[in-house]
Design a protein around this nucleic acid. Structure first.
Lengths: 249, 249
DNA sequence: GGTTAATCGGTAATTAATTCTCTATATAGG
DNA sequence: CCTATATAGAGAATTAATTACCGATTAACC
């Protein structure tokens, strides 16, 4: 996998957690946050980090909007939801906005994750260097196939699937990345949950049924391909400005 | 990559192309189709194909809605947009709905595509067997790195990047799948366009600037990860029924 | 120090998307 | 043949998301 963003995920000073709710007990009555907003965040963060690296120290919604082809007001609202706060005339201080966004997304310090399924995709994710900038650290992979078990490049180890539950629990890993064949997905997902994982990144295309409280995020290439091939065969570009942000997966 | 859906993409009888516009000259005044609708299509199609394989011959929105956790009316509207048409009491005939959806998505007969960038991800996509069911046929890959050039498994060949423009034009390939490092993305994308490709499936994370009329669809793992890690760190599942369809990428 | 220009933050209006309600209709069962 | 019922289809109503508008505020400039 490509991409090589700046990977200086600094340990942020965890601002008051914007978004309305979230007082001490992070559980109750959180007014559900618009998914489109969350999907735009990485684009903001990416640009902000780049500009910070260039030496800038403030940024306005206007600038961001221009660079991303979005409406300034939209960005202002998004940043507000994320707990950012700016000042008239100058905008937002990068030195406080960047950590705020990182904290908001939970990227301030990396979460550890397991890849389950060491096929082509699983290995691609296992070896991808760019996740560090996104608060993700993949620590190991698991596979059924004995031939795949062992040490892979870059010191990432591949364990037999049978060890998943035990290792997951012992290491306190909370995130599982599912890259198994679709038929195996449900069973493996349940193992993950049983091992204490609270989040699953599901690349399998299966529609998972899991206990309440588990966070599942699906990557479904078919969805994306549907847009692409429909538009291709009907010859219509999405918007004047090609695919802004929140719309594409 | 996992998934192994039924791959019987039948050559459909191209129904009247529902969706409002699309009269002969497929170019003008097409009332832009809601992206969420398009994103739900593959889920419908998948289920319909499975049921058809089981021997069912009609299906109602109610059934689909139940199976997918969506509102029946929503599905009815989606199917209408896609050119489907049903009858009271029985619902839609699978034998006509499935081809209608396939035609609508442009999956009736496979489009040929090139993968550009034969890294882990590029190879994963190149070798993925499931695209046939999605009207996609990846015919070759391209890479800069001379060591990667040659014949890969399954008879898919990897060519030097320099041959992209020539081969693309000669073979009339209209779709490019970008799996190169982000820094190279813009240049490669331009080469693709110059070679006559009209659609780009962009896995690079780069924000591409391309000539009007090019259809770009981005797969941005960061967007998805943002949702996942935010919700994980704030401990809130998305909906009661975990991540329906149109919302996830 | 006053003035100007840019920007945030809040509120209202618009637009898009989903859900609700109702009517007509075709099928199945009696 | 007649009735009961599940369903499509159309349009209204709701909800979510985006965009437009308007003061208030702060820095920069003269």
């Amino acid at each position: 996998m490509p991409e090589a963003w700046e990977s200086d995920a600094r340990t942020a000073t965890a601002r008051p957690c914007g978004a309305g709710g979230c007082d001490e007990k992070a559980e109750m009555s959180t007014p559900p946050l618009p998914a489109p907003t969350l999907r735009r965040m990485p684009a903001y963060l990416r640009l902000l980090r780049a500009w910070e690296a260039e030496g800038r120290d403030t940024v306005s919604c206007t600038h961001l909007a221009e660079a991303l082809g979005l409406d300034p007001t939209l960005i202002r609202k998004d940043l507000q939801l994320a707990g950012g706060s700016g000042r008239p005339k100058t905008g937002y201080r990068l030195a406080e906005l960047v950590p705020a966004l990182e904290a908001f997304l939970g990227w301030s310090h990396p979460s550890e994750a397991f890849v389950i399924g060491a096929g082509n995709l699983g290995l691609a994710l296992l070896h991808y260097q760019g996740f560090a900038a996104h608060g993700l650290s993949i620590v190991a992979a698991f596979d059924d196939d004995a031939r795949k078990v062992g040490t892979s490049s870059l010191g990432k180890r591949i364990f037999p699937l049978a060890k998943l539950a035990d290792l997951g629990q012992r290491m306190g890993v909370r995130l599982g990345i599912l890259c198994v064949p679709e038929a195996a997905a449900q069973a493996v997902a349940e193992t993950c949950c049983a091992a204490g994982m609270r989040g699953l990144w599901n690349f399998t295309g299966a529609r998972l049924q899991l206990p309440e409280g588990t966070v599942v995020e699906d990557i479904d290439l078919a969805q994306s391909l549907a847009l692409l091939s429909h538009r291709l065969s009907h010859r219509q570009a999405p918007h004047p400005a090609a695919s802004p942000i929140g719309t594409a997966p």
